[in-house]
Amino acid sequence: IAAKLRGPGSGRYKLPSTCGFKGHDFTQHMKPAYSFGKRLGNSFISSNKCSPGPVYYIEPRYTRHGKDGTPHYSILGRPLNPNTFKTPGPGKYQNEKVHPQGEIHAPKYSMGSRTRYRQCDSYPSPNNYGLPSLLGSKVINKVSSASYSMTGRSLTGSFDEDLAKTPGSARYSIVDPNIYRKRAPCYSMLARRYMPGDKTTKPGPGAHHPEMVVINRPRAPQYSTGIRHSEYITPFVNESTD
């Protein structure tokens, strides 16, 4: 029963190390730890990373009197839209078409443009005014007279009525006489019926065996094989009366 209980063995428990200083067993005494320093090359000593020192770079444009006033120039970038600086050249000007100043101009006439439409010009003409009607039922501020109207022409009896579209005598259904008179006897034809008969399977002449019938004649004796009895069954002993 104890063999069925399987627990972790001694190899499953991990004890802390007693060497070094990382993860050292706190229950044991730890010795002092030493490390090796990094070797500094000649390039590291000669570079500015060793120490700042008195090595400072001062730009030449700064003097003891301040910043010098010499102009500085730079190259600008390409403009985005070159057409903005597309100024006309000297050949674009036509000085011969310009009238000399101080001389008298000949009269010039031109066809003026259509004047601008003003809101104050929107007055209706006299023919736009209309007086209300004094006939009919819609008279303003006055008692209206009697109003009569003509109805539309009826389709029945009009000149455009198609008499061929009227229903004839054959279109009316005839009333069944059985409704208003004594009802006559009614007969109906039944469906076809089949003659009743026995549909069970009947044996034919070849299905009979008269030679096997022995009820009306003597029959030879017949023997059969007995049943095998078990050896462990006690035989039946009949007690004799003698």
Results as ranks from 00 to 15, higher is better:
Gly91Glu: 03
Ser147Thr: 07
Glu161His: 01
Ser145Cys: 11
Tyr180Arg: 10
Lys92Asn: 04
Ser113Ile: 09
Ile179Glu: 10
Ile179Asp: 08
Leu135Glu: 09
Val139His: 01
Val98Lys: 01
His208Arg: 09
Pro132Arg: 02
Ser154Arg: 04
Cys120Gly: 07
Ala106His: 11
Arg192Val: 12
Ser122Arg: 02
Leu135Gly: 11
Gly157Phe: 00
Pro167Asp: 08
Val143Asp: 13
Lys142His: 09
Pro126Trp: 05
Ser133Met: 06
His208Val: 13
Tyr180Ala: 07
Lys202Asp: 04
His208Asp: 12
Asn178Gln: 10
Ser133Gln: 04
Ser149Gln: 11
Asn178Glu: 08
Asp121Gly: 03
Tyr109Glu: 15
Arg181Ala: 15
Asn178Tyr: 06
Asn216Pro: 00
Tyr117Phe: 13
Asp198Arg: 01
Thr225Gln: 09
Arg228Thr: 13
Tyr93Asp: 02
Lys108Ala: 15
Gly130Glu: 14
Ile140Tyr: 07
Gly130Tyr: 13
Lys202Val: 08
Arg228Lys: 12
Ser224His: 02
Lys202Trp: 10
Asn141Pro: 03
Tyr129Lys: 00
Thr200Lys: 00
Ala164Phe: 02
Ser110Pro: 11
Gly204His: 06
Thr151Met: 10
Val98Glu: 02
Gln119Ala: 08
Ser122Ala: 10
Arg153Leu: 09
Arg192Cys: 11
Gln94Ala: 10
Arg171Pro: 14
Met195Asn: 10
Arg183Ser: 14
Thr156His: 07
Ser188Val: 06
Pro124Gly: 09
Leu135Arg: 08
Thr200Pro: 02
Ser110Ile: 12
Ser125Trp: 01
Asn141Glu: 13
Arg183Pro: 15
Leu155Phe: 09
Ser145Gly: 11
Pro90Ile: 03
Tyr109Ile: 13
Ala146Lys: 03
Asn216Gly: 00
Asn216Trp: 03
Met195Thr: 12
Pro221Met: 02
Met195Phe: 15
Pro126Gln: 00
Thr151Phe: 06
Lys92Arg: 01
Pro203Tyr: 01
Pro185His: 07
Ile215Ser: 04
Gly157Lys: 01
Ile179Phe: 02
Thr200Trp: 00
Leu135Val: 11
Pro167His: 11
Lys138His: 11
Ala170Leu: 14
Asp121Asn: 03
Tyr180Asn: 08
Glu161Lys: 00
Ser144Ile: 01
Asn178Ala: 09
Asp160Lys: 05
Arg181Asp: 15
Ser158Leu: 01
Gly152His: 04
Pro100His: 03
Gly206Trp: 14
Tyr109Gly: 15
Pro126Ala: 01
Val214His: 05
Ala146Cys: 07
Val213Cys: 03
Ser133Thr: 06
Gln222Met: 10
Thr156Ala: 14
Gly102Cys: 00
Val143Leu: 06
Asn127Ile: 05
Thr115Pro: 15
Asn128Gln: 03
